[in-house]
Design a protein around this nucleic acid. Structure first.
Lengths: 277, 277
DNA sequence: CAAGTTCGTTTCATCCATGAAATGACTGTT
DNA sequence: AACAGTCATTTCATGGATGAAACGAACTTG
């Protein structure tokens, strides 16, 4: 085999073996046989130039390099999974709305306005920090922080989002780190003087920890200013300010239920912006 | 072939064909023959359920869907390319705690108790509905709803978790559906008489919508009973009740910072159980 | 301690993905 | 209009990846 050319499918099989903890269970999960998986893992290790597993009598155990690789491949899988046809299958009239976790939270809190006059379709809120692909119907409506370039997408500017640091008191100095690649997480990582004492994987938990009085959290002002227990402990962070856009597919936006959802969501988002100036 | 299972290596070959603008040039670039690439592209289109190329006499031209896919695969390639390098550097002393989103929320709200006497390590809360693998160090501490079978894991029973339906009023009848495969989501799907009028991808948003007064949500009682705006609208759902276990790795649990975190988390979790009986 | 079970590795027959060769269609040149 | 060149598709023989079967090692159970 070509040892210089990584077979991407070996990464998928690696993921299965890593998750299953051995070849036999991974064989069941993947439909490939245990000998095949064994050979593919050896091939992968040869290409990568690292031992990914300790081969124990009762199964495969990841090495440190294997664990590091696993984290990356889990992320790859999350990106590849939606590409399957089954992932895009349209089941009934569902309007999928994709927004970051803060925006989704705010939309849910204002759900009565959004639902007004809209019984024809079911709404599905997909809370994700990465951009879902409207051109491929991963979502029908998206709220994004960048104007889309694709010609098939229609967009409408909502307004400008500001971020700031929040805590229960200015006396609280350390920060909570969100272990995802959002601009605010990256900004915080780039501030060497900002001590981080705790980490969370979900942005909502950062808010929880700020409210619990142990750390500062970077929050959008339409969220931070709405919390009664929190005060701003920094001025607005200009590096994180960005415009917010409501995006949909040219073809989809004339469906009546999509049209109404767009109008309502725009209304709610605009009012959030006005409150948080 | 298995049309439901995307071969990740087909994405790599797609990238080569897209870049080369045809099979012949891509054959040269990849070492695969043109007929092979042609078949693999057909297979990829079948799995994805979209036409990625217009097949012209003088080569392959990307369709809009193909162009969109190309952007994603370029990104995937950028992530996969460095995998030949040495493993990522080992970070500082971080204690990773994995629990479901409700439990993580509750732990964050009680973070002061958990942090007591524990400055030596940074805590990382990983909010996930699936079980992270402690045997392979995806997490150091896990809160699970099943006793682990693996011998390398130490476990300690916390107590029993109950679930119930919650809303702002018993007059509210429709439910919010969480589009993830958790037992509570699956239970709700199995109740044909429970009308669902709205969907969310994140469990926290189900709570948001219940508090907004538009739907009923299935919540664990240690969450639902703690919300001032919500009341139980069903009795406890016996099908969803389960034991809760604190799990860690045999080897890891004697590290002082892990030991302390385990003790504190156990304390907090036990008190949650007492409150929600 | 013996028997049973489970897991990974090795061996080897099978079959399927591959590529060589042929073919067809289209474009460019004379 | 005829011919040459280029590209993709089809046909079919082949070789290599696959998995069934066997084996060995380690662990579990009675």
């Amino acid at each position: 085999m070509d040892e210089t050319n990584l077979d991407w499918d070996d990464l998928k099989l690696f993921l299965a073996v890593a998750r299953a903890g051995g070849l036999s269970a991974a064989a069941e999960a993947t439909g490939k046989s245990a000998p095949t998986l064994g050979r593919r893992m050896l091939a992968l290790e040869a290409v990568i130039g690292a031992e990914l597993f300790r081969r124990l009598p009762r199964g495969y155990e990841l090495t440190e390099q294997g664990t590091a690789l696993l984290a990356k491949v889990v992320d790859l899988e999350a990106q590849i999974r939606p590409l399957n046809r089954s992932a895009t299958k349209h089941g009934g009239s569902v309007v999928k709305i994709s927004a970051g976790s803060w925006m989704t939270h705010a939309l849910c809190q204002n759900i009565q306005t959004i639902l007004k006059g809209n019984d024809a379709a079911r709404l599905r809120f997909i809370s994700a920090e990465h951009v879902l692909d409207i051109a491929h119907r991963e979502a029908v409506i998206g709220i994004r922080n960048r104007r889309p370039e694709q010609g098939v997408l229609a967009c409408r500017k909502i307004g400008r989002v500001q971020f700031a640091g929040y805590a229960t008191s200015k006396m609280i100095k350390p920060w909570v780190k969100v272990t995802v690649k959002t601009p605010s997480a990256l900004w915080l990582a780039a501030q060497p003087h900002n001590a981080v004492n705790i980490e969370v994987s979900a942005p909502r938990n950062a808010l929880d920890l700020a409210c619990a009085g142990v750390a500062r959290a970077v929050l959008p002002t339409f969220i931070g200013d709405a919390q009664q227990d929190l005060v701003r402990v920094t001025p607005p962070i200009s590096e994180l300010a960005h415009d917010q856009w409501l995006v949909t597919h040219h073809e989809q936006r004339f469906r009546p239920e999509v049209r109404r959802a767009i109008d309502r969501i725009y209304e709610v988002a605009r009012s959030l912006h006005r409150r948080a100036q």
